[in-house]
Design a binder for these strands. Structure first.
Ligand SMILES: [Mn+2]
Ligand SMILES: [Mn+2]
Ligand SMILES: [Mn+2]
Ligand SMILES: [Mn+2]
Lengths: 220, 220
DNA sequence: TTAGTGTTTTAGTCTTGGCTAAAAATATGA
DNA sequence: TCATATTTTTAGCCAAGACTAAAACACTAA
């Protein structure tokens, strides 16, 4: 059973909202994610249910099926491989790739993806540090580590925060640290564990050990 | 004014049928080319007329406008650049690229095409020997020469025939020479101008000067 | 000049993926 | 438990792009 572009986009959204097919997802959440109205979502859920990529019980939200998970991961795989291509080969910036990949991921050609994968040397992560599922849908999660666990001169990228309180996020915003920022450890003070971090190759930032422990990064 | 994928496909078909925007094109011809019904074409012609990419007079066929020609050439440019990418970078065979390029040509991103062009080193011809329009829609036609004008050891590709009589085509068919075949001149007999041609790197073919003079090729 | 023939358009229908407004079901809390 | 609030679905509508059947038009040949 083939999925349309719209169906693929919905399924991908449901997969993400379900935290990797673990929790069930509400109509309203899907509508918010897809920037459509709940009424449109109800319609689409019925179709996806008929195609057996989700399990749909009216009024009780949806759960993605095994088949649906497989399909979603294929689309995600294609999306991320294209992102790697755009950054590595076509010199796109980091934040310019998502929109285009959102279109490219729907091109139907198994051969194309197989060859692209090989051409890119079978990358395991996309430019945002997200793992690229293999052709069977298996994902290798990249270890994330807190900033205070990194050593001097190590580089990486901020991918998440442990403490996501408004106060903390506001602080990060103020000092110019954001999800996706490329960072490098310039110094670590033995005495109190405070750190000096280079952000985006231009801005130097001092932070306490407490702050550093709440910022998660991937190494590069 | 943006065009939908369907509109781009129609416009490209009309451009091709009109021999590069020179002659007018009938509803039936478009229907045949697009493998749809004339009724569907009438509908689409009205839309393309409204968008002023064609001039549409009911019952009298269409002529492509300057704007339409520009749009069609942009789509053709994208199609052919992707074909080059697939063959040169992803090792696609010659005859495997068209379908995929037919999808890729609709990806909307000027930056993407600009970067792809540069990445491929600004190719002037696609894998089928067809010229790639530049970003302003200018086309550099590749010189075609008759086989008997080629020298020993030169390689190329058959792109057309001068004599398109059934008899000649039947003959070509029988000996395994076809539009698109890759050829190499193995020998040329001084005495009568007859030639020995290697077809598709496997089949050797002898032909008279008369025959050779009626086959057009591009060099590679 | 007109009848016939083939081409093209129109009218009406379908599917997909949107929308709004209204109805129905579920959840909450007094 | 029951009234109200929230969520979700249904009903009805729209646009794009297909289709079939029927009507309108253009061209040709008598
Ligand atoms: Mn997408
Ligand atoms: Mn990504
Ligand atoms: Mn196309
Ligand atoms: Mn081509």
């Amino acid at each position: 059973m083939t999925l349309t572009t719209a169906e693929e986009n919905y399924l991908k959204a449901i997969y993400h909202l379900s935290d990797g097919a673990t929790k069930s997802v509400s109509t309203n959440d899907v509508a918010a994610e897809m920037k459509t109205k709940p009424a449109s979502v109800s319609d689409m859920l019925r179709k996806l249910g008929d195609k057996e990529v989700i399990e749909y019980r009216k009024y009780y939200g949806v759960n993605i099926t095994e088949e649906g998970k497989k399909r979603a991961l294929q689309t995600i795989r294609k999306h991320r491989l294209w992102e790697v291509f755009l950054v590595e080969k076509l010199q796109f910036a980091w934040d310019e790739v998502h929109e285009v990949a959102e279109e490219l991921e729907h091109i139907q050609s198994p051969l194309l993806i197989q060859r692209l994968d090989s051409y890119l040397n079978f990358p395991k992560f996309d430019p945002h540090g997200d793992p690229i599922p293999d052709e069977y849908g298996d994902v290798r999660a990249r270890p994330r580590l807190a900033l205070n666990e990194m050593d001097i001169d190590q580089s990486g990228q901020i991918v998440a925060v442990k403490d996501s309180s408004a106060a903390f996020l506001k602080y990060l915003d103020k000092v110019g640290a954001y999800i996706g920022a490329r960072i490098k450890v310039l110094d670590k003070v033995e005495f109190d564990g405070s750190m000096e971090i280079l952000v985006d190759q231009k801005k130097t930032l001092f932070m306490s050990k407490d702050v550093a422990a709440n910022i998660l990064a991937i190494q590069s």
